[in-house]
Design a protein around this nucleic acid. Sequence first.
DNA 1: ATAGGGTTAG
Length: 645
Amino acid sequence: MNMILKAVSKLKWTKPSSQARQFSLTITPPVASCNTITRNSSSLLDDFTRFCYQRDLPRAMKAMHAMQCHGVRADSVTYAELIKCCLARHAVEEAKLVHNHVLSGGFEPETFLVNILLNMHVKFSLLEEAQVLFDQMPERNVVSWTTMISAYCDAKMNDKALELLIFMLREGVRPNMFTYSAVLRACDSLIILRQLHCGIIKVGFESDVFVRSALIDIYAKLGELRNAECVFNEMPTRDLVVWNSIIGGFAQNSDVDEALNLYKRMKRAGFAADQSTLTSVLRACTGLALLELGTQVHVHVLKYDHDLILNNALLDMYCKCGSLEDAMSVFSRMIQKDVISWSTMISGLAQNGYSQEALKLFESMKVSRIKPNYITIVGVLFACSHAGFVEDGWNHFKSMKKFYGIDPGREHYSCMIDLLGRAGKLQEAVKLIHEMPYEPDAVTWRALLGACKVHRNTDLAICAAKKILNLDPQDPGTYILLSNIYANSQKWDEVAEVRKTMRARGITKEPGCSWIEVNKQIHAFNVADSSHPQIDKINKHLKHLIQKLVGVGYAPDTNYVLQDLEGEQKEDSIQYHSEKLAIVFGLMSLTQGKTIRIRKNLRICGDCHTFAKLTAKMENQTIVIRDPIRYHHFQDGNCSCGDYW
DNA sequence: ATAGGGTTAG
């Protein structure tokens, strides 16, 4: 904790880096200050051509200016060279002059040269200007169309991109594989994607690697991993981007195991990971809380210390693996930080129980002049709600529109309901639900239900649970909770009713499962599971540990009805909850003193929470448990959540 | 001359 505080105070702020420059299409007349000494036009042209090919931008610009005064023009290929040079140096002002020069003097430049100008506008993010130029072009070929389509895809104007494809076909211009690989990115529905895919197969472009990687990526983005895999498996040749597309696809679709398998296959196939691969692998580590693998990947990230996206992924990995010291050290060393870096760190601190530090960091963020976004504020409100900072929460909530121009959204309201509810202001929370400008959804009611659990308000809990089940009839946890509430009040008819509904809807209770990484191997434990090879030893050890804990006042609590967030305890197997097995296995197999890190699929129950606190104290051992919502750092008999989750 | 892959919450 102290380390984190120190790290927060030592942070250095990076200056904002946006310096968007304006650049218009207006053609300015030649400047009047031309050198009056007459020069031979062919020597002017020679100079210009030489400078262009030498990529000597300043001299080329001077030469061009002289040519303009004397009405001399070069050939298109030379101008193309010059434009490439401007692009490479991001020389917007110079590009503007070249553009004016090329289009002035009543000449009609060749299509390929205008295409290069078009592309230049797109690369400098001047979409509107590009469209004007495109509209003025007397002749537009595949390249012109593809450039525009690609530009609209970059701007996420999917509809416009698809519309252009139709205009293009109407004008009789046939799309090529460049066009298809670009336009595929504009698919936001499966129907459109399937239609385009048909067309691609029909014209025989499916064999192109670019088209295939675009297909894989977009199928994965639309959640159709099987189709993505089909395209991938059929490929005779693959390149790094294709591998990255499929690995990224699985990493982003929570089939993280498969992403890691593919990463291994990729390496076996002889490809070296690049920034994109590493980002996806880190995301996979994040999902599975694989700190050891993630730390290994960190070594490879070091050579890409200028890559913001990759470093953000690294930062998130450490946060989500509960290793805040590492996260802070990455954060403070990052060369460049953007909203995502800040938001990740703020949420990371908050989820790990460091609410105060999260809010402090938010203050520093304001100083750094990086503007918070929607997600940043969610993190800030999360920090407030999990620390019981009602007043701070209200202040941030009320001022977000005024200070940051962000309208409070559903998630912000849910955080506020959570905040009020946890603080015991259940009626105020209900009031806010009625006042908010959105229809409450399952997340909203779950926030209220969480508060009912903390404050043991059975009636309101039943009401909230019913609302959740109306909106999300597939949520096993809520059925179990409802049934447990009824059981606790001995309303057996209602219990039977809930069970009946569950059966009728085919809903089965998700079994509790915990994972722990030991020697780069993942060990999984289910409730009362006996499949682990060392289970007998683990059970023996667990019994022994429980006896020792009882000696210091531990009383296994089997009546955590409202506290029980996963509904495992009615299984008569509370002492075999998956996290207990994982903790014991960690004690047995990790080197003494090494933090035990566990990830689980359901929320931790009250009994296991007490068990973990006492174990941490008795064994002098740090234990970190990540549940689907937040983190618990157990140390010296306490938990970072302050018994408030 | 035009094309494909990676980051934050719930």
